[in-house]
Every structure is written in structure tokens, then in C-alpha cells.
Amino acid sequence: MSIILDKVNYIYSPGTAYQVQALNDINLEIRDGQFIGVIGHTGSGKSTLIQHLNGLVKATSGNIYFNGEDIYAEDFDLKGLRTRVGLVFQYPEHQLFETTIFDDVCFGPKNQGLSKEKAGLRAFEALRSVGLSEEVYYHSPFELSGGQKRRVAIAGVLAMKPEVLILDEPTAGLDPAGRDEILRLLRELHRERGITVILVSHSMEDVADYVERIIVMNQGSVMLDDIPREVFLHYRELEAVGLAAPQVTYLMHELRERGLAVDTRATTLAEAKDTILKAFV
């Protein structure tokens, strides 16, 4: 099971003066059960890319295969794809609309054609998994704090039981505690349920600690695609396109220059601590 992108191109407003090549010959394979970070600065094409993965935006040219099926084929169930590849947009709390939290989370499952009871069960399960306490389920979503609202919105997508979960900047605007909560929640979902998680971010620090693969987007193309430590070895190239490697990467290189025998491939705090301590033994 996987999503395969084959020479995908996307052009905004083709044939006009405003024509922009948003995606340029993208080839990717997203295998089942991976935890992937997509990084790039504003306008790098990362948001356009993820909207292709669930069929919201149709490629100008190229093919996308979901579990081996061509999603642009006549008989492919595109609406079904949108629920199998769940997409959580930036500031998802802005899409809440029902009078109660519970009803809002039921919206997705109901659109899938589930009965009221089944949708309700899904909603319960999803709300529990994002760690929201039961006493608020029948309150208005507008009474919640920013971080809580965001978790309700994520539950709204989870309730559709997607096989792949994509989140566009899920921590934007949250305080540090809220940020950690969301990232931990994603790690849990990935570990315990085995869903593929794709995290879009412009923060290297957020991503480095959690994901197993990083796709770096620049000007509509895939610039790097590898495990984090390999990606961050290219920190000079990342800088050149307005991205930075995690602080730890820089620290390791600077310590190396000062003659400390540290492993420059360390990217997380824990790895940094280990290798520095080793250097002092």
C-alpha cells in the first residue's frame, strides 16, 4: 500500500501572465506506515503538493497512484480518496461549524454514508484519541481554547478513519505546551495505529525529533528526500534556500571545528547529549 507520484506537474493560471509552476516534475513514493516531514518555506509548493495527495487539486500533468490505482482514472472514487487520505489544513479550527463538538466530529463519518450510530461511535473514538475530556463533548466548539479547538478539528478528520493523515502546519500559533501536545499526539497515532502521518512544517526543530523521513521542497521541486540526519548534512544547501538545519546540527559542526570528537550527524537533543558526553570521556 502506498501513494506514488509519477512526474507530477502543477501550473497555476496556465496561459496567463500570472502563470506559476507550483510543482515541477515530482516523483515520490509514500509507503505505508511512514512518519514523514515535508519542509519548505512559504511558496515552495509544499501546500500544493499535499492537496494533490488526496485529490483536492488535479495535476496539470503526471499521474498519482493510490494503492496501485490511478486516481485520475474515470472510474476511480475520488470522493472516497479524500476520506482515506485525511487532510488537516492550516488553522483547522476555523472550519468548525456545528453547535456541539460531537456533531462537528460526526460531519466526516456522516459524509462517508455511515449511520448516525456508527458515526457517533467514530466521533467518540476520535475525540478520545485526541485526549479531549468527555464533559465538553456536547459544548459548543467555540467555547474551547485555541489548542483544544485544533484537537477537535483533528478529531474531525480522524473520525473518517483515514489510512494516511496529512497535517499542514499543525502547530502554527500555539504556545510551546500546545505545540508539544499536538506533536506527541501525532507520534502516538503513528505508533499505536500505524497510520501514515505526513507533517508539513517550516520548523526543522519540530520535525527533526519526530519524523523518520524528510522531504525538502524548494521552488516546486523535491530538493532532498532522506532520513533526517542525512538531510541535515546538507545544512549549507538548506541555508542557501532560506531554510535552516536544527540548532543541534550547527552546534555539532562548530564543536568539531574546535577539535571535539563529536558525531556531526546528531540532530536531536538526546543524540547531541550522548555524543558530547562521549567526547569528554
Binding site: 526543530e205 536544527p246 540548532q247 543541534v248 552546534l251 537533543l269 547531541a272 547529549k273 558530547i276 558526553l277
Partner: peptide, 9 residues
């Protein structure tokens, strides 16, 4: 982050 790392060390 650097404060945190120094603290751990």
C-alpha cells in the same frame, strides 16, 4: 534549546 542541552549536560 541550547539552554536545555547545557542543563542536561
Amino acid at each position: 534549546q541550547m539552554t536545555l542541552l547545557a542543563d542536561e549536560l
